[in-house]
Computed example of a mutant assay.
Amino acid sequence: MDPVKNPYAPGAGTPPPILAGRDEILTKARLALERVKIGRSEKSFIAVGLRGVGKTVIMNHVQTLADDNGYHTAYIEAYDQISLASEITKKLRPILLKLSRKEKFEDLAKKALRGLRSFASALNVSFSGVDFSIKSEEGLADSGDIIADLPDLFVIVGEAAKEQKTAIAIIIDEIQYLSETDMEALIMAIHRCNQRSLPVLLFGAGLPQLRGKMGNAKSYVERLFDFPTVDALNQDEAARAVLEPALNEGVEFQKEALNEILRVTLCYPYFIQEWGHAAWNAAETTSITLEDVKKATPAALDRLDKGFFRVRLDRMTPTEKKYIRALAELGPGPHRSGEVAFIYGAEVQSVAPIRSSLIGKGMVYSPAHGDTAFTVPLFDDFMKREMPDWKADEKQ
């Protein structure tokens, strides 16, 4: 069929044509936004899940909801070695400049802007744009300790927003990449805003280990945030994600073709988009058959191998690749760390640093003490394709 009209959208954070199965979490976001805007208390939330479940799509949708509710939004995509101080400075500066232009309510907003400059200066962060008219606010968020300063900064920002009957939504994707210090500072800042009923919300998304990481930073985190799990779709939701985009273009999937896509994708949203995209391009008529899907599978796997999977493999050292391949030998998981070490060919203690490094890189996580699992669905099959003779290669 015509590839130009292909409705499926495989890509990092690309909105799918049908956002199936996410109504509950989006309703939660909408409720929080509306309640906080009118001065009611509501928890922020951190969505957790594996790669490819659509967390980034959800965060983008939450930003749209916030914008539609009159919020000022700061969207941050975290990464290795991110400086939260630098990112927060860049994102809050235009918001505070906008708030400070309203003459009737400019005092608090200008104080917040001066506080932001103090914060940036104390933490050696560039205050981009170099507004020479904006001086530092002595004694406000200027200790140089982000754990002390970020809560003070958020409070004055929240007070400025409250005075102007508006609100701030901070959205952080891949939040697990924040350092322990930055994580603690962020949690304390949101906690302080909650204590003072200030209109500041945090929406975040990250990998499953995030609950434990945030809990280690502050013990009260479970009372401060909800942690909704974003998982694979159920069969009905997955079927809708496959069928509706095609039906909107006058194309149907035969039942056997649909069932095959649900089987090979395990109902993960990103993989549904890849197989839907490949099946559409493989089909010659407006009725997509089982044969079309089977013909499309090599193309879908090739795209995944060269993109989605490959970028993650390329970040690993040789010893990390060996550990991942040993884990893959056992199947999807989770698996006991001792089993992985046995397949690897070493004692648990000697491979523990490799496992810790892979957790830090977001490649594996520990769903329970002593267990190890992939953060990327189907990665075990990819590693078997990529390193089929890894034991033989080692002996040579």
Rank of each mutant, 00 (worst) to 15 (best):
Q176I: 01
Y177A: 06
S179K: 10
E180S: 13
E180Y: 00
T181Q: 08
D182W: 05
M183S: 06
E184K: 00
E184M: 00
L186D: 06
I187F: 00
M188S: 05
I190R: 06
I190K: 05
R192D: 14
C193A: 15
C193E: 10
Q195S: 15
S197W: 08
L198G: 13
P199W: 04
V200M: 12
L201I: 12
L201P: 03
L201T: 01
L202N: 04
G204T: 01
A205T: 01
A205F: 07
G206L: 03
P208E: 03
Q209L: 08
G215K: 08
G215W: 09
G215D: 06
N216H: 10
A217K: 00
K218L: 01
S219C: 05
S219M: 11
S219G: 11
Y220G: 08
E222I: 07
E222F: 10
L224M: 08
L224C: 05
F225D: 12
P228T: 09
P228L: 05
P228I: 05
T229F: 11
T229P: 06
T229W: 06
T229R: 12
A232D: 02
L233M: 08
N234S: 06
N234M: 11
N234Q: 03
N234P: 08
Q235K: 09
E237Q: 11
A239T: 11
L243C: 15
L243T: 14
E244F: 05
N248H: 13
E249M: 11
G250T: 15
Q254C: 02
E256K: 03
E256A: 10
E260K: 09
I261Y: 05
